[in-house]
């Protein structure tokens, strides 16, 4: 589904990413500043790798040798930003309609209503993002992403701006939403519990170098063996 093999020189290290993700939820696990968000930004076309290839299905998004570099607009990725990046001067309904620009104007209203129903945010339609709670913002951001009909989901620390209680309340719903999505999802996180409860495969990224991906069970075993103290604290 998503194949990414690229390098990008950063200030402190060189980011080396190799991702070959099938449908399901693929995770990049690593400390803050390990290059996780940069990886997602390169896949989305917000940042440009120095060299390499990024393919989505058989569509080439980026190929440094063939000088292919599609704009983010043409990549059809759904990007969930850490703080959700809702447009502050639009209502919830306006934000979702902004994701529906590929549709004719008269169809947007009905489609937006349908999405708001699905993500249980209909009562918030006329509210501004600043007045929403963290969980509501997340649902609006997800609805907006699904409005744009993405082929891959990029999730940047989706729970980092929520408190722990709220997080565990939201995770089942979040998982259900991701599982209803036909394409693959790439989630970056520095939280072991989030990854174990949501993801299928994990690649550990350290100082910009992404290790080969392993299944979630192997990841759990590895963490347990390598960092028993971390594992105990988190379980």
């Amino acid at each position: 589904m998503l194949y990414a093999d690229f390098e990008k020189r950063l200030d402190l290290f060189t980011l080396k990413v190799h991702i070959d993700a099938e449908s399901g939820i693929f995770s990049l696990f690593g400390a803050s500043g390990a290059g996780k968000s940069m990886t997602l930004k390169c896949i989305a076309g917000i940042e440009k790798p120095d060299r390499g290839i990024i393919r989505l299905g058989d569509k080439v998004l980026f190929d440094s040798e063939k000088h292919i570099d599609l704009t983010p607009q043409k990549r059809h990725v759904g990007y969930l930003f850490q703080e959700y990046a809702l447009f502050p001067d639009m209502t919830v309904a306006g934000n979702i309609k902004a994701g529906l620009h590929h549709l004719p104007r008269r169809e947007r209203q009905a489609k937006a209503a349908e999405l708001m129903e699905r993500f249980r945010i209909s009562p918030l339609a006329d509210k501004r993002p600043a007045t929403l709670s963290g969980g509501e913002k997340q649902r609006v951001a997800l609805a907006r992403i699904f409005a744009s009909e993405p082929e891959v989901l990029l999730l940047d620390e989706p729970f980092s701006s929520l408190d722990t209680f709220l997080k565990w309340e939201l995770i089942p719903y979040f998982k259900e939403t991701l599982q209803s999505f036909a394409g693959c999802s790439i989630m970056v996180s520095h939280n072991i519990d989030e990854i174990i409860s949501l993801c299928d495969t994990v690649s550990v990224i350290q100082n910009g170098v992404a290790e080969p991906a392993v299944g979630i069970d192997d990841f759990q075993a590895m963490i347990k063996a390598k960092y028993p103290s971390v594992y105990l604290r988190n379980s």
Binding site: P72, V77, G78, A147
Partner: peptide
């Protein structure tokens, strides 16, 4: 201005003109 807002607009397929006049300018009004 939070550049992530512009990036979000781009990944949603919005044109740069739309992002400038409907997202960037209102946020900086």
């Amino acid at each position: 201005f939070d550049e992530n807002l512009a990036s979000a607009g781009r990944t949603l397929g919005l044109s740069n003109t739309y992002i400038f006049w409907r997202i960037r300018i209102p946020a900086c009004k």
